[in-house]
Design a protein around this nucleic acid. Structure first.
Lengths: 214, 214
DNA sequence: CCCCCTTTGTGAGAATTATAACATAATCTC
DNA sequence: GAGATTATGTTATAATTCTCACAAAGGGGG
């Protein structure tokens, strides 16, 4: 794999998030058959500014041609590579409730190269069954599965009170990255990547703005 | 309603998000029966710093007693008020697929005072049925419902290609705030509050970090 | 009742992030 | 092939956000 050139030690998380958004837009342009795109066009397509687009890309190298713009296919590939999406990622979901089930079926993950491999739950009625073609196993089997299948990423969609416990098990099983949906502060060793997605917080930002923006 | 004192014109969104997190922690302390809490204890409880906690609160007023700390119940109420959560909010969900269905059942919304009132979908098989006690209606009935029930907030959980169209309908129906799950750039008039929740982006931040942090 | 201890609220400084401006490089036209 | 044009990559500037340090204020003990 080509080594990735990074010019700065610390890259703003906002930049990563925008790169992900650029990536989707480029994907759209690729499918549309567009060959070349400028920072201004990207900016327009994703509600940003040309300077921001160029700055974000500049953290990682020079991908464009002055006076011309960017080759869509090439830039698309470069950004996927930056994001680590040149490979598919096997992901497990812990928690087979409504949210876990919905995430299993969620097209948005598949489209980006994330493959849901298995669900882990403690409900006896669910264990051993399948959701579509995704098997549901007992949580007790999780550690072995992660190790055997070399799983690096897990999504935690269990009730809040069990979240830390589940995360501890995942850490024990040597998982590398966790996306947590439980609205609780979860602690992990610093070498583990953790990302909290709090759905209610998002609604609360909206209510705050409704109340306060004039 | 007591007018909210805001000391700065612009409050960082990060502050709002943290307030929401503080709020959950205070909720936990209230239930635990704790009477008083310091900024340091809050910081510890939510993985932040005492200075950050105090700074965040300082945008909105003085809620503590020097040498003592904060009255848990009072601070909890104040923050709920800041976030606009002193009232319940009726919310509709557009899209009765896996995600929409899961969000309908999602306890995290109810716990924070959000009440899912109805689902809107175009699937003839679903229209007229109920999900738990939440009715599913046709999208064509949406505008009237929003107006009649005075709904201010909507969650969009439809396939990406329909998202803008649905959002346009919501805007037309005079909705005030939208939480969008479709990974597409959506445009709304500036007076409408829009928040995009992109689930895949969160996984991609993780893969980026896995690849690049060391 | 005064002093000491604790913890808040805040102002100044540091760090981070975004915006703008410009110099450089590539293409195209004449 | 030179100059005009266009759009990148980068440097400088501005804005935002966070961190730190301390003064102010309240409570408790002697």
């Amino acid at each position: 794999m080509k080594a990735l050139k990074i010019k700065a030690l610390k890259i703003p998380e906002a930049t990563i998030i925008r790169l992900s958004v650029y990536s989707r837009y480029l994907d759209y342009l690729v499918k549309k058959g567009v060959a070349t795109v400028s920072s201004g066009e990207i900016a327009e397509g994703v509600n940003s500014s040309p300077a921001q687009v160029r700055k974000d890309l500049a953290y990682f190298g020079e991908f464009g041609t002055r006076g011309v713009g960017y080759n869509v296919q090439n830039l698309h590939k470069e950004i996927l590579n930056i994001l680590g999406l040149e490979q598919k990622w096997g992901v497990i979901i812990v928690g087979g409730g409504n949210l876990g089930t919905a995430l299993t079926q969620y097209k948005g993950f598949q489209e980006r190269g994330f493959v849901i491999k298995a669900i882990f739950d403690n409900d006896e009625d669910k264990i051993g069954t399948k959701l579509g073609d995704i098997p549901i196993y007992a949580v007790s089997e999780m550690e072995e599965y992660i190790s055997k299948e070399k799983i690096k990423m897990a999504i935690v969609a269990v009730p809040s009170r069990y979240a830390q416990e589940v995360v501890n098990k995942l850490v024990e099983a040597d998982i590398k990255a966790i996306m947590n949906f439980a609205p609780r502060v979860i602690t992990v060793p610093k070498e583990i990547e953790l990302r909290n997605v709090d759905l209610a917080v998002n609604l609360e930002v909206l209510t705050f703005n409704l109340k306060n923006k004039n």
